[in-house]
Simulated scan of single mutants.
Amino acid sequence: MKRTHLPLNGLRVLDAAARHLSFTRAADELAVTPAAVGQQIRALEDTLGTVLFRRTPKGLELTPEGEAGLVELRRGFLSFEESVRAMQAGQSSKSLTIAAPRDLTAKWLLPRLEAYRATDPELRFALVASDHGLDFTEANLDLAICFDASPGGHEGAEIGPRGFAAVGEGEVIGWPDSPEPATGGLTVADAGLALDAAHARLGRALVPAMLAATAPTLEDPRGYWLVAPLPQWRQKKVRALVAALIG
């Protein structure tokens, strides 16, 4: 069933004016002018097609039509407040869902999460692989780490140096984002495996400098970013995590 458009501003003004039976005192509560209260009430009366207040020698009084809906109106505002509190409850949660490339998770993220959790044993982390793109809504993510030239359409903070570092000697070990194609017989799934293969003397790996924990030897516009949509980025628990990871 299609819902009727609710004039929420007018209904909020009605609630205040009905409690005070005074446009002036309602205006003080709402931090607006008495004229603005009067305009909202008149607009609401036009929308509803009924008179809500009458002026009498004793002052302002509600009409029977105006009084008829107040109980349900106030119950509705209480429900709105409960709904807002429920939506805000996640900000005080100490559970965070993080998406990151598998190689960066193993070689960089996990040690930092361990150190962060040591500051508060109630912290809980759920880790999701982000090798195939990010969907904050579907995965219910709080924060993600991506390898790109920018944070894209999200808020973001860059971590580590940009560019690639060469590790090992011999033929180039291939992996999907390598700046150079494989020149030998070895191709692996990600930079972490390429780095492991180079350490095992199976060839030369060109991997993100931050992953190799060494200075870059090859310039590249891409780097690692902590990213999140603005609502998540503003959450206290996400800001604290970002500070812990880049601090």
Rank of each mutant, 00 (worst) to 15 (best):
K237A: 06
A26Q: 05
L21N: 07
L245P: 01
R25H: 14
R124T: 15
S150L: 08
I145P: 03
S83H: 10
F147N: 12
F23V: 00
S95W: 00
R112N: 14
L11F: 01
F23H: 02
G49A: 07
L44N: 14
A197W: 01
A212L: 11
N140Y: 08
L78V: 10
R204F: 00
V84D: 08
G184N: 13
P64S: 08
P101E: 12
A115I: 01
V227L: 11
A166F: 07
L70N: 06
G152C: 11
A157T: 15
R204C: 09
P181T: 04
M87T: 07
G38H: 15
L141W: 02
Y224H: 14
V207Y: 00
L218R: 15
V84G: 02
K58Q: 15
K2S: 12
G163N: 08
E171W: 01
A198C: 09
V207C: 07
G152Q: 11
S22A: 08
A17F: 01
D196A: 15
W233P: 12
L186H: 03
R42L: 02
E169F: 13
P179R: 03
N9R: 15
F77L: 14
R112T: 11
N9P: 06
A197N: 04
L73Y: 14
V37M: 09
D131K: 05
